[in-house]
C-alpha cells in the first residue's frame, strides 16, 4: 500500500510537470496544447488514486494531516481547472495552475516526506463529525482560489481585459462561500471542543484576514476601476494569504492547528 501511495505521488508530480510544460509550449503549438489537457486529466486520476490508496491505508478520509490536505488540495485544484477549461474552452492559464499543482505535490515530498507513509490514531480533539466538513470545504476553497489566482496571473501577464475576468469572479464566488463555510464550521467545532468559537488563534486570525481580502474584492468589484488589473492583484494577494494561512501558520507559528 505504501509503495502504491509513493508511486502515485511521484507519478502525479511527473504528470503535472509534463502538463505544465505542455500548456506553456502549447500556447504556440496545437499538438502540445491538446496533449496538455489529457496529461492533466491523467495526472488528476493518478492523484485521485494516491488519495484512494491513502484512504485504504488509514481507513479514514485523507483530511487530517498536512500532506493529506495538500494532496487533496492539489487534486481539487486540477479538477476545478479541468472543469473551467471544458466550460470556457480557454487554456491560457493551464501552465500556471498546473505549476501550482507541481509546487503543492513537491512540497509534500520536500517538507513532509514520511507523513503519507505512516499512520497514527486520531488525537481526541480531532474525533469530531465536524472534521470532514470543515477540512473538505477548506480544500474546495483553497483549490478554487488557486485556479482563480492562476487565471489572474495570466490576465496580468497579458495586460489586457479578456473573457477570463468573469470566470475569476465566478470561481472566487464559489471559493469565498466555501471559505465562509470552513470558518463557520470550524468555529462550531472549536466551540464543541474547546468552548470558544473564536480564539484569535493564528490560523483563525489569518483565515479571517484572507476572508477580509476576498470580501473587499467582492465589494470593490462593483466599481469599474477595480475590475481589471487591481482586482487581479487582489486575487493574487488573496491566494498568497491562503498559502501563508496554510504553510506559514502551520510551519512558522504554533497554535491550536499545529497538528495540521
Amino acid at each position: 500500500m505504501i509503495l502504491f501511495i509513493q508511486l502515485f505521488l511521484y507519478l502525479s508530480l511527473l504528470l503535472y510537470t509534463l502538463a505544465a510544460i505542455s500548456y506553456f509550449v502549447g500556447q504556440q503549438n496545437v499538438i502540445f496544447s491538446n496533449a496538455a489537457f489529457k496529461i492533466s486529466a491523467i495526472g488528476f486520476v493518478v492523484n485521485l488514486l494516491a488519495l484512494i490508496m491513502r484512504i485504504l491505508y488509514t481507513g479514514r478520509l485523507p483530511l487530517v494531516n498536512g500532506s493529506e490536505f495538500i494532496l487533496s488540495f492539489a487534486g481539487f485544484t486540477v479538477l476545478i481547472y479541468l472543469w473551467y477549461e471544458v466550460k470556457s474552452k480557454v487554456n491560457s492559464a493551464g501552465g500556471v495552475v498546473m505549476g501550482i499543482a507541481v509546487i503543492l505535490i513537491a512540497s509534500i515530498i520536500i517538507l513532509m516526506p514520511n507523513q503519507l507513509l505512516e499512520t497514527h490514531p486520531l488525537m481526541p480533539a480531532l474525533k469530531s463529525p465536524w472534521l470532514t466538513s470543515h477540512v473538505l470545504t477548506a480544500v474546495f476553497a483553497y483549490a478554487g482560489f488557486a485556479v482563480a489566482a492562476g487565471l489572474a496571473a495570466i490576465e496580468l501577464l497579458k495586460n489586457k481585459e479578456t473573457k477570463g475576468n468573469s470566470w475569476i469572479y465566478k470561481i472566487n464566488s464559489f471559493s469565498f462561500a466555501m471559505l465562509t463555510l470552513t470558518i463557520v464550521l470550524g468555529a462550531i467545532w472549536a466551540e464543541q471542543a474547546w468552548g470558544r468559537y473564536w480564539s484569535w488563534d493564528p490560523k483563525e486570525t489569518w483565515a479571517g484576514v484572507t476572508w477580509i481580502i476576498y470580501a473587499l474584492y467582492f465589494h470593490l468589484h462593483k466599481s469599474r476601476k477595480w475590475q481589471g488589473k487591481r482586482a487581479n492583484i487582489m486575487v493574487l494577494a488573496g491566494f498568497i494569504l491562503v498559502l501563508f494561512t496554510f504553510f506559514g501558520v502551520n510551519y512558522l507559528i504554533l497554535g491550536l492547528h499545529s497538528y495540521a
Binding site: 484569535w200 493564528p202 486570525t205 489569518w206 479571517g208 484576514v209 477580509i212 481580502i213 470580501a215 473587499l216
Partner: peptide, 12 residues
C-alpha cells in the same frame, strides 16, 4: 475591515 485585517495580522 481593512484596519481590522491589517491590525489583526500585525497583532497576531
Amino acid at each position: 475591515l481593512i484596519i481590522i485585517g491589517v491590525t489583526s495580522a500585525m497583532g497576531s
